[in-house]
Amino acid sequence: MAITQQTFDFLNQLKINNNREWFHANKKEYDGVKASFEESIQELINSIGTFENLSGVKIKDCNYRIARDVRFSANKDPYKTWLSASFSEGGRKSGKMDYYLHIENGGSFLGGGMYSPTAEQLAAFRQEIDFSPESLKGIIFDPLFVKTFGTPEGEKVKTSPKGYDKNHPEIELLKWKQMFFWKKFTNEEVLSPNFVEQVTETCKILKPYLDYLNVIFFDHEEPDIQLL
């Protein structure tokens, strides 16, 4: 079952009526939307699993709840107005860099990368750039990668990170505090019969960058990344 227009219609109405009374009154419609999204998640587990180790990963390990955690948020809307899932070895709670899929009316995308690194991870990222900048540059400046994702997204320091000279030859890469990439999908692309295939092919292009991060964050050895 592919994602249908019903998904966007429901999310649009939820944005207008973001309260528990409306949600529970329309629970049957949500259940249908959730079921179609979960079928797409399973299809993606199967297809991404051909090049990533998703052994044992189930739908519940990828899917995010639609209910928002409002305890520490100024926004008290009880529900998200999008659907989302992420795919990685061990599931979304593993801590590994993952492929994140976001379905929202006019705002769907597939993304991934270094979004909230620990201080240790950021230090390892910068150290790897200092020691071997060509590894990262060969990935993010690859023509197909650039065509798909464009330039990096995320925050940068304004001058130079502590411990690095402002005249370092790779200072612009070293400035990144975050570095993630995303590819947007139109509603028409999301609703197309080959959407799972489009997402899968996008994941394959993103894979070398996620591999790069997972190696330096978790394997503590020099990355040996092969471009697809």
Results as ranks from 00 to 15, higher is better:
86 S>W: 12
228 L>I: 12
139 I>V: 12
146 V>N: 03
23 F>S: 01
150 G>R: 08
11 L>H: 03
205 I>F: 07
214 N>D: 13
50 T>H: 02
6 Q>T: 10
218 F>A: 02
73 S>P: 00
20 R>P: 00
167 N>L: 13
116 S>I: 10
103 I>C: 03
123 A>N: 07
183 K>Y: 06
190 V>C: 09
3 I>G: 00
217 F>V: 12
130 D>I: 14
16 I>W: 05
221 E>Q: 10
196 V>D: 08
188 E>T: 14
149 F>G: 02
13 Q>E: 12
175 K>S: 07
205 I>V: 15
31 D>R: 15
76 K>D: 07
19 N>I: 10
168 H>E: 00
85 A>S: 06
153 E>A: 15
9 D>I: 11
221 E>S: 11
67 A>R: 08
199 V>R: 08
141 F>C: 15
200 T>K: 11
14 L>R: 00
173 L>K: 07
27 K>H: 03
105 N>W: 13
77 D>Q: 13
29 E>G: 01
14 L>V: 00
97 M>L: 12
62 C>V: 04
111 G>F: 08
77 D>K: 09
70 V>N: 04
152 P>L: 10
34 K>H: 08
125 F>R: 04
125 F>H: 02
64 Y>H: 05
178 Q>D: 05
64 Y>T: 08
66 I>N: 00
208 P>F: 11
84 S>A: 14
1 M>D: 06
56 G>V: 05
55 S>F: 01
213 L>T: 06
124 A>R: 15
67 A>S: 10
16 I>M: 00
135 S>E: 11
52 E>W: 02
2 A>H: 11
21 E>H: 05
136 L>F: 03
174 L>T: 09
38 E>I: 05
44 L>R: 03
